[in-house]
């Protein structure tokens, strides 16, 4: 029996574990590289993610993890892709976003997604959601948020928590009247591999700064 258990563990390590993860999210080498490329503040940010989020939230509940991660990333500065990358639409890796310390709604969503995934949140419960957000001035804005399904098959808006960067609190969809339309919900790296996702996944694996 013991032998079978060992074999099972080996199989798990060989096949399952590598497919679920792409190595440690924040490595020492990455911190050194970030320091070289983006200087001290970026280095501090990556160290903080490792210490406060990845290590500090290990034993917390999923909701606590969602709130802490959401809060941590929402401290980043909002800047459009045009301003940061000189192009109309660009999906930055967590590393580029944290390294530069700024990004747009998609970059917040991506960073939150990968951090929560690293913290053990089921990636199939996290959806990249294209929504239309109504601002206080009444203007409709195309926007992206990370939606977390509290149960695998949500039956009401109560079962879906929204992690956004405009309204910075983690609230159920029922308490987000500012989201006037949900255009599309898609899976992260566990879903259909579109061109954009393929590129992002590739860049995340090579820890593109």
């Amino acid at each position: 029996m013991n032998f079978l258990k060992v074999m099972y563990l080996i199989l798990l390590l060989l096949f399952i574990f590598p497919s679920q993860s792409f190595g440690e999210l924040i490595t020492d080498k990455l911190i050194v590289d970030a320091n070289a490329k983006y200087k001290m503040f970026a280095k501090n940010r990556f160290e903080a993610i490792r210490k406060e989020l990845l290590n500090g939230l290990k034993d917390k509940t999923d909701i606590e993890k969602l709130e802490a991660v959401n809060d941590w990333y929402n401290f980043m500065q909002y800047k459009s892709d045009q301003q940061v990358y000189g192009m109309s639409d660009y999906w930055a890796t967590l590393y580029e976003f944290v390294g530069k310390g700024m990004g747009d709604c998609e970059d917040y969503t991506i960073a939150k997604y990968y951090t929560l995934k690293e913290l053990g949140i089921d990636p199939n419960r996290m959806k990249f959601t294209y929504v239309v957000y109504k601002s206080r001035s009444g203007q409709n804005i195309s926007h992206m948020v990370l939606a977390y399904l509290k149960v695998p098959r949500p039956k009401s808006k109560e079962d879906i928590l929204i992690l956004g960067n405009i309204n910075q609190r983690v609230l159920p969809a029922s308490r987000r009247p500012d989201i006037v339309k949900v255009v599309k919900m898609i899976n992260g790296d566990t879903g259909a591999q579109s061109k954009k996702w393929k590129q992002l996944d590739f860049d995340m694996k090579r820890k593109k700064l």
Binding site: W91, N140, S142, V183
Partner: peptide, 16 residues
């Protein structure tokens, strides 16, 4: 609504 239009196009573009 042009915001919905943009979201629709973005969602389609990003998913394919």
């Amino acid at each position: 609504d042009s915001a919905i239009l943009v979201s629709t196009i973005d969602a389609e573009f990003d998913s394919g």
